[in-house]
């Protein structure tokens, strides 16, 4: 069987890419190995761990549960696009650093993407809401407490930025 190839065009972090991909290539593999955006990590490839979370338009999704070909014509955002061009960290990144919200850092990109999407929609969450919002991202190092604190702080930083 000849590989089933498709030409796709998509935007990631504001940059347009045009590639030919085999239909079965997972979006996570495409981002990491075809576009070199290796900040999106792969932890389980069955949609549970959340390490591969990216934004599809503005919605967080598992990039291991989408085919690259499905992203044709779509706009994606990954961890590489969070900090500003001059290197200033996004409030969620600043807060994670300030609160020691990461240890090995492997789950971190997915957590950052989940946080940004959630906080954009819910600027003043309670701790319970924050825990619920994080419940689809597994972290094995931190016990979550500092991530929760970081997310609460990031909310405050983002509110301040918005005001």
């Amino acid at each position: 069987m000849q590989p089933d190839q498709h030409e796709i065009e998509l935007t990631v972090n504001g940059t347009r890419y045009r590639r030919t991909v085999e239909s079965r290539m997972l979006l996570s593999d495409f981002l990491r190995h075809e576009l070199g955006l290796a900040g999106t990590h792969v932890g389980c490839e069955h949609g549970v761990c959340g390490a591969c979370t990216i934004l599809l338009e503005s919605d967080p999704v598992r990039s291991c549960l989408m085919l690259a070909v499905q992203a044709n014509g779509r706009a994606l955002a990954t961890v590489e696009g969070l900090a500003s061009a001059d290197g200033e960290l996004h409030p969620v990144q600043q807060a994670m650093h300030a609160h020691h919200g990461l240890q090995c850092g492997y789950c971190t990109p997915g957590i950052l993407m989940t946080m940004t999407a959630y906080l954009t929609e819910h600027p003043s969450p309670s701790e319970d809401e924050v825990r619920e919002a994080l419940s689809g991202n597994l972290c094995r190092c931190t016990g979550y407490q500092n991530i929760v604190d970081a997310m609460m702080d990031a909310a405050a930083r983002m509110r301040e930025e918005a005001s």
Binding site: G47, G50, T53, P60, V61, T114, G136
Partner: peptide
């Protein structure tokens, strides 16, 4: 609906 997986799954 809140019992169905997680927000990232519910978005798709």
């Amino acid at each position: 609906l809140p019992h169905i997986a997680h927000p990232q799954i519910r978005n798709r």
